[in-house]
Design a protein around this nucleic acid. Structure first.
Length: 213
DNA sequence: CATATGATGGACT
DNA sequence: GTCCATCATATGG
């Protein structure tokens, strides 16, 4: 056990943070702030005894009923009710035949969320590739595994059933801390018909695993 | 039951 | 860049 830890420390710079799960308070802030701060952090997915890990390299912030691009727009309904859940709760829903993974921010009763749009694969790339090939057999490069919100849910086998999980504690899905410095690029949210004036898409400058330039 | 709607992905030019 | 398959929901007849 001890030597395993040492090996990870020596040979995998990200693994030394694997026990540092982001606390619930991390998510109890504006979705804009959380979206920026989630960059560089590591999304972990456990499937049986396998572990899949990817560094978050692209996010988008969504607000509540005032945000025309938010799922909460127009008020609470069956489909979007998880938007009103407690901060640090997962919310997965389908758009254009793809499951999209979000984490609820702010606080319970105040709808807002961060969409995870792209990951840089870290651990379990072989399984991610296998999962991706189920829908698209032509995938073979690392950069095609998680470079989009629908791609990463395919790669990590995330679907509707993963709504309502606490990502702030170790379980099937959680997010680990990772101290790493980089520049953040801002842009307008992708694929929304009615966006806000503010740029609410964020990605790590120079990272080649993002969905679009 | 029929049809429209996406916070998309993939194939193609 | 363009086009279209995708599929869980919502909504209307």
């Amino acid at each position: 056990m001890f030597f395993l830890g040492i090996n990870k420390y020596l040979f995998n710079s990200i693994s030394i943070f694997e026990d540092m799960v982001l606390r619930r308070e991390f998510y109890a802030r504006s979705s804009k702030r959380v979206a920026i701060d989630l960059l560089g952090k590591v999304l972990v997915r456990k499937v049986g005894n396998k572990i899949l890990r990817g560094k978050i390299v692209e996010t988008e912030a969504y607000f509540g009923m005032e945000d025309p691009a938010s799922r909460a727009y127009g008020g609470k309904k069956n489909l979007n009710a998880p938007m009103w859940d407690k901060e640090g709760t997962s919310f997965v829903y389908m758009v254009h035949g793809n499951w999209l993974f979000n984490v609820i921010t702010e606080r319970e009763g105040k709808p807002s969320a961060v969409l995870i749009r792209a990951l840089e694969p870290v651990d379990g790339k072989g399984i991610m590739l296998k999962n991706r090939k189920k829908k698209n057999p032509n995938i073979f490069k690392d950069k095609e595994l998680c470079s989009g919100p629908g791609k990463l849910t395919q790669a990590l086998a995330i679907n509707q059933s993963h709504t309502g999980l606490n990502v702030n504690k170790k379980g099937d899905i959680y997010i680990e801390d990772n101290k790493e410095r980089f520049e953040v690029v801002r842009g307008h949210r992708i694929g929304v018909s009615k966006d806000l004036p503010e740029k609410l898409r964020f990605y790590i400058k120079g990272n080649s695993y993002i969905s679009k330039k």
